[in-house]
Design a binder for these strands. Structure first.
Lengths: 141, 141
DNA sequence: GTGATATTATTAGCAAGCTAAATATAAGTC
DNA sequence: GACTTATATTTAGCTTGCTAATAATATCAC
């Protein structure tokens, strides 16, 4: 009996995640961004000049993924890369002016998406939901 | 103030989804499957000989995605494709014996993953959680 | 039957994401 | 200084996933 509920939960999480990704990704296309790139930029907005390894940690993904994303973002003029002077292995990533200008419009779309996801959920429910989700997160570690 | 909670919820859902995908995907590699292929096969286990459009609906994805997945699954010997006799546009997808044999081991891994995700969550919480998630799902439609 | 429109599937080209293997540099050891 | 090990990034090749464009067949209207 619990089985059915459990199964629903897992599938629900999947569906929400992929639908969010689709929706939000679509709204980001107006800014010439792909979903996921906003998260990389978000890390840079709170301080750029960092190395790719730090982006890996922030995005929780593998180095080759960053290489690809960074390449694409550079080609589109949102970031630049500079070889570190002290350690020639590391590439330091900087925002261009265009990249900086994206912060506000991305934030707008992010909030819009969030509101869409949660608009019918009461504040108490949101608190409870957050607690359970955090618990699930730590279950996966 | 609610802002922070909302933001956490969205990120939590993202993290859970991607971590689940990683974890579960890894366990599926033992079966020579990629994550997502199990869901396609699951539709076939409940009745094969269906057309690709039906798989699109079940997986909630676009036709080219199915073309790719089906190609890969065919190359690995899990399914076969047959041109429909009445309507030459449609391809009908059938399970091979190898494909049929995957049902049990996939189900085992799926349940194991589900248990990992939910093990610390009480039954009442699961019910509540499901309700809220469903609500979020319908918010996105 | 002919012509316009629907449907089904594929191809090409792009993105995120992965693993395994290669490259380049740095740092530690003898 | 030479050898080994560790770190940062890249490359190649695969997956799911997308859109836009194409091909092939069906169906509907006339």
């Amino acid at each position: 009996m619990t089985d059915k509920v459990d199964c629903d939960i897992r599938q629900s999480v999947d569906r929400i995640s992929s639908q969010m990704r689709r929706d939000y990704g679509e709204s980001l296309r107006e800014l010439n961004l792909y979903v996921g790139q906003d998260n990389l930029l978000a890390r840079l907005w709170q301080g750029d000049g960092i190395m790719q390894m730090q982006l890996c940690e922030h995005l929780n993904c593998e180095p080759p993924t960053i290489t690809n994303m960074v390449k694409s973002l550079e080609q589109n003029g949102f970031i630049t890369r500079k070889r570190d002077e002290r350690d020639a292995r590391v590439m330091r990533i900087f925002l261009t002016d265009t990249g900086k200008d994206l912060e506000k419009p991305v934030e707008l779309r992010w909030k819009r998406q969030q509101e869409k996801l949660l608009h019918s959920i009461l504040p108490e429910e949101r608190l409870l939901l957050r607690r359970i989700l955090k618990q699930m997160e730590s279950n996966l570690l």
